[in-house]
Nucleic acid binder design. Sequence first.
DNA 1: GCACTGTGTAACGATCATCT
DNA 2: AGATGATCGTTACACAGTGC
Length: 263
Amino acid sequence: MKASSIWSMAVHGKMFRICNVVGQYRNILLNRHTSSLYQQNAGLKKSVEEKLGLPPKPKKPLTPYFRFMAQIRPAIVQKNPQAKLTDIAKLAGTEWGKADSSVREQLQAEYKREMVDYMAAQVKYNQKLTDEQHEEIKKAKIEIAELKERRLLKKKKKELGKPKRPLSAFLLFMTEKKDERGTQSFKDWQIQMQNEWEKLYEEQKSAYMARSRKLFEEYKREIQIWEEKMIRLGHIDVVRNEALIQPKRQGTSVSQRSRGSEE
DNA sequence: GCACTGTGTAACGATCATCT
DNA sequence: AGATGATCGTTACACAGTGC
């Protein structure tokens, strides 16, 4: 903890130098960056290194455009109090397009100066880490990238209207009983549901199972139609592998398609 | 070509446990 | 992976420029 706070102080010091911008926005900039760093240290946005319990790595200097945005943001917000974050970014982009070349050059020069410090800090930081720590960071980054990929694929499936898997017999039972929960804790209620499910008469259970089976039959039909449509549209990544392997019952076959892109 | 850099917030995800 | 729900944590969104 102590080591990390020393690191944190070092980063603070660097950022204050980074924020040493001349002109009328100097104070605003200083305040903004101070609070921003405070939030990061409070753990709102942790870097991979910090998540792994390693000292925080030096932050990249702000690019000229980000520096510019930080300067004009207060004015934009004041003029457009109800503007959303995304609106502000758009307005800032417009302003950047209209900005004087001397302003751009000055911001560019500041960026270059701070980049020198950053590079040195980065080298120092990397030297401080062991080979194992470097490897750990590398692995974590790959994992994060894979997670992101999975999340995006899930989002795509949703957007393309992938049919949802139907409820199992037990879930149908649980859904039906949800209004009877009252003030019981979620966990206790689940355990109670499990007990009640086990005590159900076979014919009662069978009724739920029959309903679930029927839903699954419908689902099978829906998913097949949907996957065939996805293949036609070229969205092979959202289709289960079986759908690519199994030849279709009628019409054009997809079996000759290459499966190279899939696992 | 993608991650990073800043911002605030809405939306989304993981978690807990249960079964199929 | 589907539902249940509260809670806490994380990410996408917009913008442009830079470096790996």
